[in-house]
């Protein structure tokens, strides 16, 4: 969806949009969960009244997302603080809690936190005592999480109906990269109220790892927008690029960081030293922008490729076969990109 990338990169580009162009831009921004960020990005631009109204509503909505996210963090903090363990906020909640540009207008879903692996059992007990409950009692999924994943099975709060994902590292234990979780917690910084966030380098590297080493690139435009904002804000300090590269090497994420830099630079013009685009980058960019002006997903084959790839990255092949087999037998699997529609 080129119009969305253009508007985020250069808000002045909206001057050429007609009514259909605007409708398409808004549908795409909603589909990519970027409507709040777009609304803030367009502040101060001359907009049609109907669009200005929608932007105002989107900004008000994101203020409520922010409030809810910070409240969930506070509730988790109150439940976990008697344990005396470090609780590191991750992703969107971390951005808004730390007051970073990446948090401006960001939509935030579940609460993601990281704690030391040794504290998982106690944390689980404390959260359950404070009203969180298991989402699914399925024994296969449960064993799968505990044996292979980088987080506890998701918990949901019975009153507030909000999810918490408790991580002890940033990638599944079966993934081929093994970032140094202990170093991430050790270097995390306090926000002053007992909660913590990753240090700037790790914050970027977590977003990079999540996008390129873990996911199927769904929501990638927004993740790269996060990275663009983080790189611009933290990169203003001398020597940040070098420290970031060194930290990536420590976590085994150098290749992923290099790709992220090339992609953010290509999409959003992020001022970083990125090499020339690789052939595979073009495939990534095709996948990232696979959405039409009705907000529909397009390019089903590219999407399918990335879905298989995301499982390949997380799990060794034999285990992948077993996982897909179990999922398939239970009828739980449905590949994305098979919901029809052609680019128009």
């Amino acid at each position: 969806m080129k119009a969305l990338v253009d508007a985020m990169r250069d808000p002045g580009s909206i001057a050429t949009l007609d009514a259909d162009g605007w409708t398409g831009l808004i549908a795409a921004a909603r589909a990519e969960q970027m409507i709040g960020s777009l609304a803030f990005r367009l502040e101060g631009q001359a907009l049609p009244i109907a669009v200005a109204r929608m932007c105002e509503e989107a900004r008000a909505s994101s203020a409520e997302w922010r409030r809810t996210a910070l409240w969930e963090a506070e509730m988790a903090h109150r439940a976990l603080c008697p344990l005396g363990i470090p609780v590191v906020l991750m992703k969107g909640t971390a951005y808004v809690a730390a007051g970073l540009d990446a948090g401006v207008g960001r939509s935030i879903g579940d609460l993601d936190v990281m704690i030391p692996r040794a504290a998982l059992g106690n944390a689980e007990g404390a959260l359950i005592a404070a009203g969180w409950e298991w989402v699914k009692p399925d024994p296969y999924d449960d064993a799968y999480y505990r044996d292979h994943m980088h987080e506890l099975p998701p918990l949901i709060h019975r009153e507030r109906d909000r999810m918490i994902d408790v991580h002890h590292t940033i990638l599944p234990l079966t993934a081929r990269q093994t970032p140094d979780a202990a170093a991430m917690i050790a270097q995390s910084v306090t926000l002053g109220d007992g909660l913590r966030v990753f240090c700037p380098e790790d914050m970027i590297l977590h977003s990079v790892a999540h996008l390129f080493a873990d996911g199927d690139l769904a929501g990638g435009l927004r993740n790269l927008w996060d990275q663009d904002r983080l790189l611009r804000q933290f990169g203003a300090v001398d020597g940040f690029g070098e420290r970031l590269a060194a930290r990536a090497a420590l976590h085994g994420l150098s290749r992923h960081l290099a790709r992220a830099l090339r992609q953010t630079h290509a999409l959003y013009g992020t001022p970083v030293h990125a090499g020339p685009l690789h052939l595979s980058d073009r495939l990534y960019l095709r996948r990232l922008t696979a959405r039409d002006r009705w907000g529909r997903e397009t390019r089903p084959f590219t999407r399918l490729l990335f879905y298989i790839r995301s499982h390949w990255l997380r799990m060794p092949p034999l285990m992948l076969m077993r996982h897909l087999w179990t999922k398939w037998r239970k009828g739980g699997i449905r590949l994305p990109g098979t919901d029809g529609g052609e680019a128009r």
Binding site: E64, R67, T68, L70, W71, E74
Partner: peptide
Amino acid sequence: DAIHHRPSG
């Protein structure tokens, strides 16, 4: 009384 609690909404 109805109370709106601002930190939590």
